[in-house]
Design a protein around this nucleic acid. Sequence first.
DNA 1: AACTATTGTATCATTATGTTACAATAATAA
DNA 2: TTATTATTGTAACATAATGATACAATAGTT
Lengths: 242, 242
Amino acid sequence: MSKQQPSTEGHPAGEGFIPHLAVDAVIFGFHDKQLKVLLMQYSRTHLYALPGGFIRQNENLDAAAKRVASERTGLTDIFLEQFHVFGDLARHDPSPFASFMTANGDEPDAGHWLLQRFITVGYFALVDFTQVTPTPDKIFDSCDWYDLNALPPLIQDHTAIVNKALQSLRIMLDDKLIGFNLLPVDFTMGDLQSLYETILGKSLLRPAFQRKMLSLGILVRVAKKYSGGAHKAPYLYRFVSK
Amino acid sequence: MSKQQPSTEGHPAGEGFIPHLAVDAVIFGFHDKQLKVLLMQYSRTHLYALPGGFIRQNENLDAAAKRVASERTGLTDIFLEQFHVFGDLARHDPSPFASFMTANGDEPDAGHWLLQRFITVGYFALVDFTQVTPTPDKIFDSCDWYDLNALPPLIQDHTAIVNKALQSLRIMLDDKLIGFNLLPVDFTMGDLQSLYETILGKSLLRPAFQRKMLSLGILVRVAKKYSGGAHKAPYLYRFVSK
DNA sequence: AACTATTGTATCATTATGTTACAATAATAA
DNA sequence: TTATTATTGTAACATAATGATACAATAGTT
């Protein structure tokens, strides 16, 4: 192993990848009436980051994003949406990776792959929280859910990326009927409403919400849910794509 | 001049630019109740293309797009919006540039800068048609307006890029009140309506349109327009950003 | 069997949008 | 000068969408 490319085994050194270009995934989940985001951490530092990766020279851009999201969640079918490219020079901040390499016992090489300027394509993913197995990668040895409202400080401009992702999600929510990706197959109208309320950050009127959702013709009642509290049992619904 | 990089004077050979990454601009104008798009052509071939360019290593991504749009239009203040990244392998089609180089008397070098795979960030621009001076660049010696409804065949996936741009424009039109960028400072309600009708591709009811626009509180009447046809003179309006 | 919390939906109020109608008027032509 | 004509500005009403209140239904608890 040469001193020129120190300790590149286990994390990308750039061979076979497009330089200066990355993808970052804001993976949203929904649990306990809270929006969650999947974050990576390298335990020896206190640096949190979005799951990300690079684009292989012979790989579609979307495929790279799907690969990143799949590897971190264990899921194969993932709702993914490109939402913005972050390409300012100001976002170039190699210090987190330099710290990481130092903590790893390496001498940061100024020309190292990870320390170059990256332009990153932001994707957001909507996943069923209950189906996800958070899986670390070779750079970051921790991968877990964090409350969107209580995110730890993130490296570089990753906080801005999360904010922009949420903003895009809110805009698309009504038009594209994508919220269902965050719920299990069967859900109650209450589940759906609290999901919408959480994403939009505001409360909605129950009768109007139910009327609207039912009028869209994208829900089927599958059964009644006999469980839970001391009250009338709600119906269970399932999403149908016309 | 070495045989390795033949005839690179006059068009980029890659020095100082980020490889594999480009920006393409769909520059919309509005004239004679038609949406127009600015296209480039290299006269010795019959290849049409969107205005595009590369990102300097020390340049913001948005700045690169702005630079491209400015150089082709002569405008300095341009409404620009990033709308999608095109990153499929399938879009890689070096033949247009190879043809161009052949027509230019060069031997296409397989490793030439222009022949590599590019991932391109799509921007659309909305400009005042009357203020634009279409300006060719060093690769394409023609730059002109073309009817959106009658575009010539474009290289690579540029037709798909235009279509996606129009789709994004339609979605943003209501939310972001961006249509005004396509009109001169002063315009009539009829101008505005026909602009909206052209973009959306459908006719709108005049009273409802006028009521809606006035209710938004973003228009001021500046004068009456005493000119034109044998009928009542319309008011002129101007856009105000609150 | 009464109580409680929540669900499903009916009902009405309000707002937004679709549609028709018509007076106002700037140029043209009698 | 005065009708004519085409278009503009807006009132007025019809319909649809959304906001808000009310209440019966009911699954569990007491």
